Simulated assay, not measured.
Amino acid sequence: MTYKMLVSDLDETFLNDDGTIHEENVQMVKRAVAQGFKFVPNTGRSFESVQEMLKKLDLYNQAGQYVISFNGSAIVENKNNRVIATQDMPISLAKQIFAAGLINDAVDVHIYTLNQLFIYNVSDSDKKYLETRGATYENLRSDDLSFLDTAQPIMKVIFEHPDMQVRHQIHDAVIASVGADQVEATYSSDRYVEFNFKGVDKGTASLLLGEKLGITQDEIMAIGDNNNDLKMIQAAGLGISVANGIPAIKEAADVVTARTNNEGAIAEVLNQFVLMGE
């Protein structure tokens, strides 16, 4: 099989734990792209937060190169950050999720609009994590969300807490409030529980981008490490887990890399399936 596109999660997959990029990943991506291959970051984060990374890969402001953001809520062409597809969340639903998930005062909440991140009750650990990812945000001083009525489209709402048990409680509280038929709920980075509008996920967006580019499902590879990558890995022609992936991702994947994210797992994949050891 000739693969034409790799959709790749970023945190704990393409990026090192400290947010940097393994140099072998950089070189292999550049070589693959030079041959006409598509390397598409597929991230829960905003497309604006990955611009410095794109510069290192020579993908910044390039026509015909793309980023999938917000767990699939937006597909963006890198040239002038041209948004080619979005699926936003109703404002009323976002407000309901926000209220239901604030189960204690140690929980912080991210609200992503198309071009801005708002955070309420941001924790110290979250601040440090976001700094390593180059993410900028507006700190909300109040839980009054009336400003959203005139804001840009809402992409997703997520909650941060270091305790997985608390994250499960947040998940259950939100589902009890809004209903499982209204949201896609996932976990990521061992700190977040994320909510997108129902039907929005990394896998659906990957196939949509492939369709727009004339790339079939069988010609798409997907690689990730965590729960919000599951549907992407299941949707692709070849689903791949990095060596540090959680058990559910490894089980769903067709291939598990020998390398972790810190060891250049993407370079391993591109060398094996695209560059064929060149």
Rank of each mutant, 00 (worst) to 15 (best):
L270I: 12
S46D: 06
A85T: 15
E263M: 04
Q182H: 07
S73H: 08
V122N: 13
G237D: 06
L114Q: 15
A63R: 11
G199N: 11
E251T: 03
N121M: 03
G44Y: 00
G36E: 13
L54A: 01
E160H: 15
A173R: 04
G203A: 04
T136M: 14
G224N: 02
E131K: 05
D105R: 03
E160N: 15
M89P: 14
Y187Q: 05
S125A: 03
V256R: 08
Y112C: 05
L59W: 04
I97F: 00
D144H: 05
S8F: 04
D144T: 08
S177K: 11
A243H: 12
T13M: 03
N61A: 03
I84W: 00
D58F: 04
A205V: 05
Q27P: 12
K231E: 04
T132A: 00
N271L: 01
L54M: 09
A100M: 08
T132D: 00
N78G: 09
K95N: 06
E219A: 06
N16I: 02
R133Q: 10
R167D: 00
T43F: 04
I246Q: 10
N196E: 01
V256A: 07
P153A: 08
A267I: 09
K30H: 01
I220R: 11
A34E: 15
S241M: 04
L6A: 05
A205K: 03
R191N: 13
N80R: 14
A267K: 06
N262E: 01
V256M: 08
K231F: 01
T216R: 12
T257L: 07
M89S: 11
S69V: 09
D17G: 14
I223C: 09
D190Y: 15
N16P: 02
A173F: 02
D124Q: 15
N271F: 00
Y66M: 01
Y60P: 09
E184N: 11
K128V: 09
L130W: 06
E12R: 10
N115A: 10
G239V: 07
I111A: 14
N25L: 10
P153R: 10
D163R: 13
T86G: 02
Q217N: 08
T216S: 15
Y192R: 04
S142C: 06
Q87I: 08
E24Q: 13
V269Y: 04
V7Y: 00
K202Y: 04
Q27M: 14
N226T: 14
L117D: 06
K202W: 07
R45G: 11
K95E: 09
D163Q: 13
L54S: 01
G101T: 07
A252F: 06
G199D: 10
D225I: 07
P153F: 11
K30V: 03
M28S: 09
T2V: 14
A253P: 13
N42P: 09
K30C: 00
G19E: 12
L130P: 10
Y120H: 09
K212I: 06
A151I: 11
L208R: 15
M276V: 11
V107S: 01
E52R: 12
I103L: 12
A222W: 01
V157P: 13
A235C: 07
Y137F: 11
T86E: 02
Q165N: 00
G36K: 13
P162K: 02
V178N: 02
